[in-house]
Design a protein around this nucleic acid. Structure first.
Lengths: 342, 342
DNA sequence: CTGAAAGCGCTTACAG
DNA sequence: CTGAAAGCGCTTACAG
């Protein structure tokens, strides 16, 4: 009944030991005799006692709280990642405190303050549009940071991404092998490394094979922008026979725009995305796309973050995770390819 | 530089006042002379001081943390709600700690313990499948709870939902006015009040007008189940000319299944959903649906929760928010209706 | 292994 | 309005 109202002192009294003993029983790795452990556990159970994490945080300097900075949950990739991150962290005894970032400079400032006010043990920044300023400032304050699905030009931070350059290359090879001649690219936001790397990888293949893209534009990771780009492309004299789109979220809009022109993806034109969010697998879109292995990305991010929390000396570093091209119906598949991927 | 490392004592020393004075300056509503405020603010600024929320929480008993229990972020309604809830709470000086619920009984138990360990000031339960057990136990421990998008048979809790019964009625009236004769319902999970109320409202209208539905099945809020139900319905001798689906997430699957039969929603058959998530507005689905006014639901939920935190005596109660039927292309629109809704 | 004591950073009656 | 003191619930050296 008196759930979580009991304090360690009350437990100590009932168990006939000191508060120190109670604390030790609830501290993994601390030494206590079998007898003590038993007495304390019994008393704790009867009183419904659980250590107050906040009090523990004060003295230990560990809040067991990870700040997650996100924005733009409309792109399905992020909620999925959030759910997996939360699960993984919960299993390790941490929880996620959400910080929704406003993009203004003021916003970054505010988020940074909030993050520090709550004494988070670490930060996962999963917002592509987030100023890397935030990461730098957290780092300066000694708070470990992991950039999730967001690269970094310098080498100051730990970041976890899929291998965007290689992913872009896979799409290039796929489209060329499929005999496409008029290839366009509606890129991810060029202010982000993900957008740039995918583009760079993609274009590097075209260049090697001597193919000049008919168009390369910035879709800004924005659905409306991507749709408008598509309409523009389809009205050109030199219509593309294929479009590589910087992420799935935009690609769904591109498919919609293509259909509005009476064209059928996979038949009249090939569309390829990036992410492989669940929607991509729906028959409605049936989108060929490069899979970002969210599970492994989450695992890596959590591993690294907790490692840096436990041992601040752990070196930072970029983690690149390989992602497969998933073949579906939205793009013509080269005859000699099996359905097993590359 | 020494961000957030400074303590109130250091600020006090530098400002030439006591720790109490510093505390008062940072406590809204506490009394301090203009002079003191000025001196303290200056010293704090120079030291980069900010009160430690965890320490404050210990003595004040207020953590400024709200536990949000969610699951199934694949249904777009939830991430959208999460983002809005987080924004609204941040504005009021609170933050969301995420608890992803596993559905097992063990899971509920674990979530409950975690929630209490972190001393959350309040709980928002936005998981339809969450055992109301959790809500009850939190309540017993004196933690205010708001059920979001989830009703409650008793009247013990504060819950915020759209007016699901009326919403169901609107769909019924709409389909009948459109001249539909063979009406089917793939309902939301019947273990939830949302699923039940929508169905009840819907069927009440049919009954009033003496129309017997051709089928009423439980779609479980599961896309695959809904698709299978659809296939079954379309293979019956008495095919439906319209289907009311318990939420948008299932409706997208229903539309897909319908198209796979070579039928066109809005022409060969009318499909109506519930929620009006962003996807519903995409041309690809163009789904007629009842809008759940997430903004207002979030506002109400936050208002009520914070009210109960500040004044535990605040009575609980159900809040019903009216939602409009949004007319789009997936269902035949009665001739006499304008496009302005009901 | 165990307990007494100090301390984490803050707020809140209590006097003045 | 202001400061000294006590205390929030816990952990961690320090002796024993």
């Amino acid at each position: 009944m008196a759930l979580s109202k009991a304090t360690s002192l009350e437990v100590a009294l009932r168990a006939g030991v000191s508060r120190s003993a109670v604390s030790r029983v609830f501290t993994p790795g601390a030494s206590a005799s079998e007898k003590t452990v038993e007495k304390v556990r019994k008393a704790a159970e009867e009183l419904g006692y659980r250590p107050n994490i906040l009090a523990r945080a004060m003295v230990s300097g560990r809040s067991r709280i990870i700040g997650l900075v996100v924005a733009y949950l409309e792109n399905q990739f992020y909620p999925i990642a959030l759910e997996l991150l939360s699960n993984a962290l919960q299993e390790r005894g941490y929880h996620i405190l959400i910080f929704t970032a406003q993009n203004s400079e003021q916003g970054v400032e505010k988020v940074m303050q909030d993050l520090m006010d709550y004494q988070v043990d670490g930060i996962i920044a999963a917002s592509v549009s987030l100023s890397s300023d935030l990461a730098r400032r957290a780092q300066n304050s000694g708070i470990p940071v992991v950039l999730f699905n967001r690269g970094q030009d310098g080498t100051d931070f730990t970041n976890v991404t899929s291998d965007n350059f290689q992913g872009g290359r896979k799409v290039g090879e796929f489209l060329l092998a499929g005999g496409h001649k008029k290839i366009a690219h509606i890129a991810g936001w060029q202010g982000s490394t993900t957008g740039r790397d995918r583009k760079l990888g993609f274009l590097s293949v075209l260049k090697e094979q001597g193919v000049e893209p008919v168009a390369v534009v910035d879709g800004m990771y924005n659905r409306d922008v991507a749709m408008q780009c598509t309409r523009d492309l389809l009205q050109q004299s030199e219509k593309p026979d294929s479009i590589f789109v910087g992420n799935d979220h935009m690609a769904f809009g591109v498919i919609e725009a293509v259909r509005a022109f009476g064209m059928q993806p996979g038949k009249d034109i090939s569309i390829v995305g990036y992410d492989d969010v669940p929607l991509a697998g729906w028959g409605t879109f049936d989108l060929t796309t490069v899979r970002q292995p969210v599970n492994r990305m989450v695992e890596a991010a959590v591993d690294r973050l907790l490692a840096r929390i436990d041992q601040p000396e752990t070196p930072v570093g970029s983690i690149l995770i390989d992602g497969d091209l998933i073949l579906r119906g939205s793009a013509r598949i080269p005859e000699k390819w099996t359905h097993e991927g590359l």
